[in-house]
Design a protein around this nucleic acid. Structure first.
Length: 674
DNA sequence: TGGTTAGTCGTTTTT
DNA sequence: CGACTAACCA
């Protein structure tokens, strides 16, 4: 097995004498190192699968790694009998969830606590702050998250704020809100994403015996995308792997693109200080891209200060020049890119799946989706939570959350009111007031006689019908298959009829299809992992549907944000909207975040194996108004010899129209022949 | 209580 | 331009 690796890769796989940091440039085979190391440890070094945990950054990466390890294990001649069962391959968040679920009691939570996504916690904050000021709410949310990730308690936050002057009042207010927010979460028996990492850390620091238990359980950690680790996650790693540092961290400082989420590249440097015995291995051979693509990437990233010196090289041939096209506006850009893609596909006899269209912000996908649909081309959009953000899915999840955890008031409110079932604002307001005065959940309050006397007969009947329904589901959930319960729940609440009542037929149809997809996916997951509905509910909060749907469309053009594309590779990449204000994003330009934007561009470029097309618009519609755009400064940072402009450059707009037309006609003619 | 309508508001990236 | 909200009627 090791013969398939190059010398530094092999060294990284075999090294188990102490903490190891693998600095792996883009496309240098870092996943390969992790997967082979896992198998090597099981096969050659006597590790049991359940003693190893590999931590990835996204669910997608986790699933991919799971597959690759499974593949390697099944090929292994010595391990025929032993499957990789018990092996942990998970994101930080789902590992945290696993720990939290088992240790919930010692933190004052029940095991079936709810997990809130950022929009849930946003709503809670809006409630607590009693404001609709989005800016303020966003800032507060960000501040609280930052406090959580640096282990500042509400009390400490209050003390801290008195030292500063400028936004003392603001910070002080935020500290107060922080406290209320935490109390609210506890009352709902809910945790937010930050808590999933933070609470295990606190637990381990306060209960050495629990830490000891987990240290003995997880003997070795492999961490992917280490440059994206935040301080909290790093602390968790240090706790689990102990002073000996039983871990391999794999990362690339040039691909650090999650600084805004609290990830700190300093954690990479911190490793060398915290673990003096740290061994560093560099992987510098790129197995992915042509020389031109790689040279462009290197040339660009050379404008950033270096943390670790490394020189990536490739022997995959020079390859084509990088094409840089200017489009008249964003509609033309989408049109031109799709045309170009079709022509390219025809010319090179490739598959749809060989192409990716990458962009900075999710909304940029829309026009391209329209074009792709118009041309009947198969495509998939990856962009994280979009599926779970859909109203119809959130509706169902609200029911699931309430069934699993009756203290979850936000879920109660959503489920009680969608679809409408005669429970209106007045009823809920009274219920809320009563529940608050008695310090119980909405669900519990509904059953109390003192409250029931406050309602009219019809209101009470409607409310109790709903609560009794939830009660029934709570009893059935642990016993029956997830799929059965979901289906009977859907018919009980008449969800399909509700959709067709309140939507256009077409919209209702797609929504209902989404619901059915969701149900299918959950029931499959339930039976394959032998989990009941209650257990599934928590994991659902951490999933993005992407993985469930990807299987459906084997040969499709991939649309993805640059963030979501990290770790993936594509034969041919279109990098779109490469303009000032978008690729170095407006907000980042002011805030000293240019370097991270450059790394984002770097990530985009290095996704490409064979060809790269960059496009930008001379004009773009923004909030209904046409706005003049400039090409991104990053385009000027590419090596001149490796790029070729189409449709003119920033300083040379004259040729654009003629050339564009000519090129378009060419492409149309070519397509006509098919 | 629930649906409709006329205004307002604002667009990074994700677990 | 479109998504989301707050006041307004049935």
């Amino acid at each position: 097995m090791l013969s398939k690796l190059n010398p530094p890769q092999r060294e990284a796989v075999k090294y188990l004498d102490g903490p190891l940091l693998v600095l792996a440039g883009a496309g240098s085979g870092k996943t390969r190192v992790i997967t082979h190391k896992i198998v090597h440890m099981i096969e050659q070094c006597g590790y049991a699968p359940k003693e190893i945990a590999a931590i990835t950054f996204t669910n997608k990466a986790a699933r991919e790694m799971q597959e690759r390890v499974g593949q390697l294990l099944s090929e292994s001649p010595t391990l025929k009998a032993k499957p990789g069962k018990g092996l942990t391959i998970a994101t930080f968040h789902s590992l945290g969830l696993q720990m939290l679920r088992q240790e919930a009691q010692s933190l004052g939570y029940k095991p079936q606590f709810s997990i809130l996504d950022s929009s849930d916690s946003f709503k809670i904050l809006a409630d607590v702050l009693a404001t609709t000021d989005k800016q303020l709410l966003k800032r507060t949310q960000w501040q609280i998250s930052k406090w959580k990730n640096t282990f500042v308690t509400p009390d400490q936050a209050t003390a801290l704020s008195s030292k500063t002057q400028a936004d003392e009042e603001l910070t002080h207010a935020a500290a107060k809100i922080y406290q209320l927010y935490q109390q609210t979460l506890k009352a709902y028996q809910a945790v937010d994403f930050d808590d999933l990492i933070k609470l295990p850390v606190e637990l381990f620091e306060q209960h050495p015996e629990t830490l000891d238990k987990w240290q003995r359980k997880l003997k070795y950690l492999l961490i992917d995308e280490y440059q994206d680790t935040n301080t909290c996650q790093y602390r968790l790693v240090r706790l689990i792997t102990g002073v000996e540092g039983r871990f391999t961290a794999v990362g690339d400082d040039d691909q650090a693109i999650y600084g805004w989420r609290g990830a700190d590249v300093e954690n990479l440097r911190g490793l060398t200080e915290d673990f003096p015995r740290l061994k560093v291995i560099k992987l510098e051979q790129n197995y992915r891209s042509t020389v031109r693509i790689l040279r462009s990437a290197n040339h660009l990233i050379a404008n950033n200060p270096k943390l670790f010196e490394k020189k990536l090289w490739s022997d995959l041939g020079t390859g084509e020049q990088i094409q840089i096209s200017a489009a008249r506006d964003e509609v033309h850009e989408a049109e031109a890119v799709i045309m170009k893609l079709l022509a390219h596909k025809f010319e090179h006899r490739t598959r749809f799946a060989d192409y990716a269209i990458l962009y900075r912000g999710n909304h940029q996908a829309r026009l391209f989706e329209e074009q792709l649909r118009g041309h009947k081309m198969p495509y998939t959009v990856s962009g994280g939570q979009s599926f779970f953000d859909r109203a119809e899915i959130k509706d169902l999840i609200a029911y699931l959350r309430l069934i699993a955890n009756e203290d979850d008031d936000p879920a109660f409110i959503r489920a009680a009111t969608t679809p409408k079932k005669g429970i209106g604002n007045t009823t809920l307001e009274r219920l809320g007031e009563y529940a608050a005065s008695r310090h119980v959940s909405l669900f519990e309050a509904a059953f109390e006689g003192a409250f029931q006397r406050l309602l009219g007969q019809k209101q009470l009947d409607d409310l109790l019908t709903f609560c009794n329904f939830i009660n029934t589901m709570q009893h059935r959930a642990p016993r029956e298959p997830a799929g059965d319960i979901l289906n009977s729940m859907l018919s009980a609440i008449k969800y399909e009829a509700f959709l067709y009542d309140s939507e256009e037929p077409r919209a209702a149809e797609t929504k209902w299809k989404n619901v059915m997809d969701f149900v299918d996916w959950l029931s499959k997951k339930g039976s394959s992992e032998e989990k009941n509905l209650l257990e599934l509910t928590q994991t659902v909060a951490l999933m993005s549907m992407l993985e469930g749907r990807e299987n459906g469309e084997p040969d499709a053009v991939k649309l993805s944000t640059l963030h979501a594309a990290k770790g993936l590779e594509f034969g041919h990449v279109f990098l779109i909207g490469v303009e000032e204000g978008i690729l170095p994003h407006r907000e980042s330009v002011d805030n000293d975040k240019i370097e991270e934007e450059r790394r984002l561009m770097y990530v985009g470029i290095t996704r490409a194996q064979r060809s790269l097309h960059i496009s930008w618009c001379r004009k773009r519609k923004r909030a209904g108004e046409m706005e003049v755009c400039e090409p991104s400064r990053f385009i000027a940072e590419l090596p001149v010899a490796d790029i070729r402009h189409f449709g003119g450059t920033a300083t040379d707009p004259a040729t654009s129209k003629e050339h564009g037309k000519e090129r378009m006609a060419q492409i149309r003619a070519m397509l006509g022949k098919i």
